[in-house]
Design a protein around this nucleic acid. Structure first.
Lengths: 196, 196
DNA sequence: ACAATGATACAGATCGGTCTCTACCATCGG
DNA sequence: CCGATGGTAGAGACCGATCTGTATCATTGT
């Protein structure tokens, strides 16, 4: 029964798990269908019964990652309820830890956008939408924190956040983790008035 | 003679020009050798006589871009001789203009690093070296500007710079150009003391 | 005549995607 | 309790397209 349940659970999920790991670690274009098939122990037709195409699988991978990222965001924000300024700073502290992780390979969405340039690719649309959503959430927090110009602060923090993602793979685990947190603090304090 | 010189000049250079444009606009892995051949009006063997492989062509493309980027940096810095603080700010103002260009497609080195994950790829090494060189130059300017902690300011500005590159393609021409310049000013002033 | 280049065919590998066939398992009618 | 049925999955051959890279031969400018 256990094996049966495992089987029923799997197929699609096993494909998605394997694809997510490979896409993130080795790149989307570098990972072929055959490798995903082999590593997930799944028949090729099972993949094409659950996903229309490789592009569709990539789209599903990014959409699931967007949900996970959203969950991370909510988790961090929930640690400082009612204190938007601390919530903002907490995001960047947590981000600084993440990019120092030895297996960190950059932002999945930025990577996908770099690999998939075709504007008509739905996976690319998911990646870009995620960026805009991030910016919107930053803007909401900046406004809640009482920034003089919430839109400006959101823009600054958005650039900083993207930079943290981009700097990670280039500078390695001893990279700019501290710089991310400290820069965000400087920008947030400057935009909200120095009083805590 | 002119045509002959043109011919002699070309071959390698025409290949490199065409490859640079295509690699940057459409991505490295998305552009095949055949397209480069056709668009540059060159025989396939002329490419393989001038470059060992496609990877070698990519490496040459990135190395030339590194030289061009260095030249841009020097040009901007030369506009404010003897004023490192203004030089730093000028870099980010200029960067803000660049990422607003409609044909901006992100940082060629970041894109290359995202597309070429194999650590043994020499083109990837060129891309990562460029990042480190940028950070070193930022550190030198930060020290010259009298920052309290030059290494810290360099790290912050480095993240900001990478973020500017990464945000461009996602947010479009009406993106965060202003945020880049303003954020850099806040960080620089905070690190050097407010007095100009 | 000679060196460099263009044109083209080709080789070998790999890619995404389709097809066929078999095996399993859950359900349901008797 | 038992046997037929249908849906899901694994295994692997196969296809056409495309990719990098090589070999061959004609052309051209000096």
């Amino acid at each position: 029964m256990d094996a049966a349940l495992e089987r029923r659970r799997t197929a699609r999920d096993r494909i998605l798990d394997t694809a997510a790991e490979l896409f993130y670690r080795e790149g989307i274009r570098a990972v072929g269908i055959d490798v995903i098939i082999a590593r997930s122990g799944v028949a090729k037709m099972s993949l094409y019964r659950n996903f229309e195409s490789k592009d569709d699988l990539v789209r599903a991978y990014l959409e699931r990652n967007a949900v996970l990222h959203q969950a991370w965001w909510d988790r961090v924000v929930a640690r400082c309820p009612g204190d938007p300024k601390a919530q903002l700073k907490g995001l960047f502290v947590s981000l600084g830890h993440w990019i120092a992780h030895p297996q960190f390979q950059g932002c999945p969405f930025t990577n996908a956008a770099a690999e998939l340039r075709d504007p008509a690719n739905p996976a690319r649309a998911v990646a870009l939408a995620q960026k805009r959503a991030m910016r919107d959430r930053l803007r909401a927090l900046a406004a809640a924190a009482g920034a003089d110009d919430p839109d400006r602060l959101a823009g600054q923090l958005h650039v900083l956040m993207e930079g943290a993602y981009a700097t990670g793979p280039a500078m390695g685990p001893d990279g700019e983790s501290g710089a991310v947190a400290s820069a965000s603090a400087v920008l947030i304090d400057a935009a909200c008035g120095a009083e805590s």
